[in-house]
Design a protein around this nucleic acid. Structure first.
Lengths: 362, 362
DNA sequence: GCGGCTTATTTAAACGTTTCAATTTCGAGG
DNA sequence: CCTCGAAATTGAAACGTTTAAATAAGCCGC
């Protein structure tokens, strides 16, 4: 039994509170959950007592009884990628607002490990799952999850014709904007180091680039259109390959900022100046992109907002599983910086606050 | 009842399997858990059937019964910081190996939000908690968790005299090594933009720097020793302050790489060349640090290894709560690059593989 | 004073495990 | 043939909730 006052007992249960309050367990449960049918005076007494005793509901028991835990699963392919961590942060925060905890899974893309993690997530009776980078091969898995009655939201990447909501940006438009920007600067020799074809986002972006080029009547030789993983190393290798022999392009669009970083390294190695000899555009606007030493022109997409939307949508669907599948697009924009010729002039585009923040000397 | 063969039923339980196998629930449980006292023939039959039916144990039920879930809580102050995400990745992976899932909490440092998240974590009956950035104010919270019988591992930062293991690096030695490196290069005018004093790691590092200086008989004017948050903005503001008036230091040690990035921006703004006019040393060796455009000299600490150790230690302690408190130090090392004068010569320190990886042209 | 109605409260059954204790089975030894 | 003991198996309680259904308690009008 819970000893009253002084030290609260280790972990009082409904039973303990009920005993102390001299009522039944059911009454305590009803009172704590704010359900009707409990006398005003009783309710107050129970609430006060529960607080005093430090009662906290056991979420396992609740989940077991309800057949569903107040828990979400977040699947991230690559946690080292800032894009995903920004989303993760937003997801965790927004979930907390709704009283949900988030299981983090870091299992790459479409493998045995991923399948295993998903199984475990289902074993935990997650109320919903958020996938940050599905590939076509995951279709069967997603369908199985849907069959199990667990709603899914896809973020950034997606597979089509599947019963799952999607939150992302208009990647095609982003690619179009990036290419158009370079075309307007007068570039006619564009290269593209795209992300993997398996990513719907990368595919669409490349598509947008091609549409812009076609519109301007500009051709991109096959040798300049390469694709690889979204890593520094891949960016380096791809750029090296493109720059291996003349003629050289005057601009390069990269699958993301990290690839751009690698590509720029290859350009430096090749003795090229950026942006005088070659312009570079990235994607994601990672933290380092706005650094003075880099100043990478890139497409900024609001990842935090995407994470937030993903959770909200999941909440809606958990509430009402019959909702029609929805596609939520958030607005992205091109951040023009030095690597496409926009030399930093003045503090107008400085990432730093005008007034220095608090500084403590010692 | 579970229909056999063909489509497995939604989610068979022990009961369903038992019914199909014609044995009791208890037998199935014993068989699946590999406990003794089950006939060999029965065991095989049950195992096969469970697999065929797609049985998966309900982790909520198990956790409820056991009074403890196979779940860890990971508290990260700032998920945007790559240091922490590297740790997170390792933690999630290593936990998976042990059959544990990881709850991710992103609740800053010592606030109402953090307390709330911890409470929820305890409500979920986490078997253990990993804290990545405790501050002294968290002491009461950690003690409360310990009192609740939930083991804790502190990573990177720590508070002393508390019943919790610690995994980190020898920060004092790292600070000493960084400063010694600069002293050996002939620098005598060193500045330091340290991380916040509330971080044990930052404190120790600063201490190591001072020890090195004292050993060399070098003085660091108070005006050159500043501290701030581990952000780009803080780095910029601090460096700006130090560089505001002559005399200027010839080298600056920063609290981490991100701060160094900001500080270098301030140096560029001040018309200084790196490393000719001023050398810079960071800490963490984040992804961008080795980029050709940056080549930041920095202290590389093996975060993944730390995450792994943290989980392993937690497992040991969950196994045997009576273990004496342990302090695990992993080795870090100084990566000397351009910003301290080590110009990149040849591919000897290139971060890229010699052979280009697979490239697909299209 | 008593059915009938509303409101407050309780009883008890789930949810799916694990595990102690009790029961059955079966072969060996007497 | 009977008994004993080990091994296999089962029954049932427990973990801490939620909730449908049953019960108790008021209260009104006739």
């Amino acid at each position: 039994m819970a000893q009253r006052d002084g030290q609260q007992c280790a972990r009082p249960t409904l039973f303990d509170v009920a005993k102390c309050a001299g009522v039944s367990i059911a009454t305590v449960s009803y009172a704590l959950n704010g359900r009707p049918g409990v006398g005003e005076e009783t309710r107050r007494r129970v609430l006060d007592l529960a607080k005093e005793m430090g009662f906290r509901p056991n979420r396992l028991a609740r989940g077991l009884r309800l057949g569903r835990a107040h828990v979400l699963g977040l699947l991230i392919a690559d946690i080292a990628n800032p894009t995903y961590t920004e989303i993760a942060a937003a997801v965790v925060n927004e979930a907390a607002v709704a009283g949900y905890q988030v299981f983090l899974s870091h299992a790459g893309v479409h493998g045995e490990l991923q399948r295993q993690q998903v199984e475990t997530l289902l074993d935990q009776r997650c109320a919903g799952l958020i996938f940050t980078s599905v590939v076509e091969e995951d279709r069967a898995l997603l369908e199985q999850i849907h069959a199990a009655g667990v709603p899914i939201v896809q973020v950034i990447r997606r597979i089509c014709r599947i019963h799952a909501d999607f939150v992302g940006t208009d990647e095609e438009a982003a690619g179009y904007a990036a290419a158009t920007h370079l075309l307007e600067l007068g570039h006619r020799c564009l290269a593209m180091a795209a992300g993997p074809r398996t990513s719907s986002a990368s595919r669409l972006r490349a598509q947008g680039v091609r549409r812009a080029l076609a519109g301007a009547g500009v051709e991109m030789p096959a040798r300049w259109s390469v694709e690889g993983d979204l890593t520094v190393c891949a960016g380096y290798a791809l750029a090296r390959r493109v720059l291996a022999r003349a003629p050289l392009p005057t601009a390069m669009i990269c699958g993301n900022d990290v690839m751009a970083l690698g590509a720029m390294d290859a350009m430096v190695d090749a003795g090229l100046r950026i942006p005088e000899d070659i312009a570079v555009v990235g994607y994601d606007d990672m933290a380092f992109a706005s650094s003075r030493l880099i100043q990478l022109t890139t497409v900024h997409s609001p990842h935090a907002e995407m994470g937030k939307h993903a959770v909200r949508r999941l909440m809606e669907r958990i509430e009402d599983p019959e909702l029609p599948v929805q596609e939520i697009l958030v607005k992205e924009h091109l951040a023009v910086r030095r690597t496409s010729g926009n030399a930093l002039c003045g503090a107008s585009i400085s990432p730093y606050p005008a007034e220095p923040e608090e500084i403590r000397s010692r």
